[in-house]
Amino acid sequence: MRLSTGERIFETVNIALLVLVALSALFPVLYVISVSLTPVGVVSTTGGFPIIPRQITFGAYTYVMRQGLIPRAYVNSLTITTVGTIVNMILTILMAYPLSRKDLPARNLFLVMVLIPMLFSGGLIPLFILVKDLGLMNTYWSVILPGAVSSYNLLIMKTFFENLPDEIIESARLDGASEYRILWRIILPLSKPVIATLSLFYGVGHWNAFFQPMMFLTNRRMQPLQVILRDILTDALARETAEILEYEEMLPGQTLKMAAVMLSVIPLLIVYPFIQKYFTKGVLLGSVKG
């Protein structure tokens, strides 16, 4: 197809703008990688971090990984993220499906009950007392169960289910399928995009969680990566500022910070491409009706 001059100009401007947008997204990532790999001597003498490092050192990564708690923290984060996301999805699906059915008795009452905690939080101290009284302190459940169902994600999933054609469900029902069978064999296979999207939302939330693990997981061997990385960084920055390094290898705070960022995002970067195709579809489908 031959493009008109106007279309060609539009295409060119469009592509240029998109490249700029892409670069603006790529630049911080490159910067983080570059800083985490650049020796501090280079930084101090050249005055700033180059986007493409002229010298490369893995010292910051070695320093962080050498801390005894890191491997255990990775296991903890993976466990909390995996189990937490599974629990989140099971409970969210089981709640969203009935709420999506217009014939559910007292549906509006249940919806209001879902909305209230989304708008008004109980606060930290009641949550702390609840977790403590349930005997969940220092268990992974303390960071999984309190947020097991996110009202926001529940509404997204409910809306998605509502948009599925009623005819399919009716025909399954006429064929004698039970509600559980309809959910398992009809609804869920049609809902892969929203399942993938919400799994990512939940998973990222668990992976990045800091405050709740800090509050409820006192045992250092149970704390996830974010808490441990924070401690390592705080410790390293305090030592750097005071320069009380006791003859250990000294690393600049900025380099350590960026290495910690990379170490915490790498697992997500690995997972994301596999669910990206569902992710974009899911976000759109959850919001469009009709």
């Binding site: 101290i125 403590k132 006192t218 808490v227 410790d235």
Partner: peptide, 21 residues
């Protein structure tokens, strides 16, 4: 020994005290 976290330690301590713990 309960090591205080490097961030939000006061929040955690206050929550523990408020919860009678």
């Amino acid at each position: 020994i309960q090591p205080a976290p490097s961030a939000d330690a006061d929040a955690k301590l206050n929550a523990m005290i408020a919860a009678g713990d």
